[in-house]
Design a protein around this nucleic acid. Sequence first.
RNA 1: GGGCGAAUAGCUCAGUUGGUCAGAGCGCCUGCCUUACACGCAGGAUGUCGGGGGUUCGAGCCCCUCUUCGCCCACCA
Length: 893
Amino acid sequence: MTEPLAPQYDPAAIEAPLYARWQAQQLYRVPADHPGEPYVVQMPPPNVTAVLHAGHGLNNTLQDVIIRFERMRGKRALWVPGTDHAGIATQNVVEKLLAKEGLTRFDIGREAFVERVWAFVHETGGSILKQLEALGTSCDWERTYFTLDADLSRAVREVFVTLHEEGLIYRGKYIINWCPRCLTALSNEEVEKEEADGRIWHLNYPLADGSGHLVVATTRPETMLGDSGVAVHPADPRYAHLIGRMLTLPLTDRTIPIVADDAVEADFGSGAVKVTPAHDPTDFEIGRRHDLAVFDVMTDDARMNDTVPERFRGLDRFEARKRVVAEFEELGLLVKVETHRHAVGRCYRCDTVVEPKLSDQWFVRMQPLAEPALAAYRDGRLRFLPERQGDNYAMWLENIRDWCISRQLWWGHRIPVWYCDTEGGGCGRTSVSRTDLDACPECHGPVRQDEDVLDTWFSSWLVPFSSLGWPEETADLKAFYPGATLVTAPEILFFWVARMIMAGLHFRGEVPFRTIYLHGTVRDTQHRKMSKSLGNGIDPLEVIDRYGADALRYTLVSGMAVGTDVILDPADLDASFAPGRNFANKLWNIGRFLLGHLGPDTPKLADVAEADLTLADRWILARAEATVVEVTGQYGKFRLNDGAAAVYHFLWSDLADWYLEQIKPRLYGTQPGGETAKAVAAHVLDLGLRLLHPVMPFITETLWQRLPHSPADDSISVQQWPVPGDARADAQALAEFGAIQEVIGAIRALRAEYAVAPGQRVNLTLADASPVVQRAIAVEEETVRRLAKVDNLQLGAAPAGASGTVVLDDGTVVIVPLGDLVDIDKECARLGGEATKLEGLVRSQEARLANPQFVDRAPPAVVAKEREKAAAWAAQAIALREQCRALRCRDQN
RNA sequence: GGGCGAAUAGCUCAGUUGGUCAGAGCGCCUGCCUUACACGCAGGAUGUCGGGGGUUCGAGCCCCUCUUCGCCCACCA
């Protein structure tokens, strides 16, 4: 792999072959006995049916940057990939496919359906992992897991049975969230609340004895068919006399009692609440307290069932609502309708309005699991980035509710519970078992396994240890648990992150990771989340195809500050990915130019005599040193964007714009010292490439392999991370070459201002040159001549004739005689203007320094600094005025 | 209803403990195809740092308040 670089940067041509090579070399394979301190990152397992989207791209890029950085730092860096069986999501996908054949899952039956899903998963599932490869992800693919694999299933079962034994899993009849489209229960977290403008109907319920009526307010009139009471607040004087009396429930032949309950808010609505125990969690509790009857009036798909009067049966809940309201109106029992803003819960998978439903489900008692998880946060064992996310975490744990884990689905881990039915002549025993049961352990009669499966998250909350072989005490488990950092989106903080922490503490006694980096979301220019339905998504594969994975990665990383979103314009990929695309192209050309001059004979920096180093050499080495410190610090703080920006600046501005320009004559052989320049250039490019490698792995590898001293068949991704001392700190070189840059900049600005033809050479006089400038010019005069196209260069007094002038911060006066190009009056006006500005600054500065409050209270260092500033400005202003006078004076001669 | 966050150049955002902090990238303007790169080079313009008050010798940076967005949580039917 050492052919010369192609003239054109073609990411497609380098990326895929490199990835294949890394895989073949098993660079990211991490056995348990791998050297180094462990650093483990668990990839948030994408849904097995998922297609790569921008969110995956961002999430996995960030993880890859972190893992590559830590790997190069000598850690035993392991990144564990996997996929999630994604119960509801996957089942929905396959059901849709079936629907195209005109079939439902009930038509083909459970066994055939599950087979069908497996076939689908084997056929198309997991392709997202292939897509991740295009990003350059350096995970250990040999460890790829699937949450329905036998070993992870075993862990799931072990956890279920253990928690059950500990009394932390129970079954019971409660109001749960029910999705009438998916036909399953959902956990609280799986319901997305959405504020919506709704209505609230005030309905008249007549007293049974005809002596009056009571008005109830409801947002869901259709549920009145299931009412079994009306509740008022015990201390509400309006209704005190009615407590205990009976009402006739309209549209039905039922009589229901009026009860008093603290749960009622007297101020809201009419102060009287209709109680529907089967269709509302609060009502369920009220019903329990007052022993009210329970009327479930809906089918699983949210139609009115046979318990309601015939004319309502079969009606969808929203149809039924209209019908009920209409009938109340006809009967003159509709008092009023008001608009009302309230939260509506929707299924997070299909967006259907969730129905509170009374049913038998399995739950995990969360309080005992939440307490240690909260303690781990409070005592600092967990760290959130951004920090404020920790409050979210704590708040959720403090108000935790039991977790409904059973799902009425077919795709997932079947609940390991077997019933010995009494109707079948059995003993009625319920068996919770680690192994499949064929017969009742008690009476040896036939058993029936629970029909339900477990919530998808009941397997993914275990992956920090189940992916490492648990419940076996494997070498992997010892070597890689606990992990170091979790990188994910805040959306799954409760679904996944918090639960992993609870499971980790409960089953392993340690938090599964220490740092939780919750990154932002990729959004469009209107700040909308990218989604398929909005059609505003960016396809990472298309971006990779057009600009390369490196360009995608750099753009994402550089746009991602901790705690912020990344905004990209899906309609303008060119503009969106310009930063990464431009930078990658620049790097390619830096490589093409520099590597073309380097060869096997290029000396190592260590073999270059100190005395041979020019100021420019020392300067770029000092810049490299500073960049090593900066980038290492920023990556270490997960400020990946700041780290990336620092390398960007080093490679583009310092190396390409200045150093490479400076050494050209030495490279071309028109000046001596070529070998030294090559050695320095090779050295700092090597450092820069290492620092950039975590962000742009492909192009850095490509260039690095062509550096003179890179071992053959080696990879930059397993090289050592640069450390301070790899280059060298040199404040003097920074200052002196900085002065050269200032002088050149001043000349260029003058040239531009006076429209000096690009090829035209000018003369230069440096008056009042500071010591730093003098020292710098003594050794880099040629650089100034060449980069600013200067002919004669002299230190001393201003020459005769019209000239342009710039006064540098250190007082050095840069004078470029420009003859006819200069309009003396204009130049004087310009200089005078600048002088006036400076004099203004000096005056305000002097006022400040004359203020005893400031001089006494501000730290001496600050005061001294302000004094220096004032002096420097004053000197500059004087120099400007002086130049103006000199200009007019010379003009007269 | 509660909690949290954000408002800085045309756009997307940095600005970590108050004293060169008014910055970067993209876009824009001017001039250049200078034998690595026009996805480039050189130069340049642009901001009462959301409004108002306050603390301080000194405030994008701290406090109060208002306005506008966003996120999370929530059993007032």
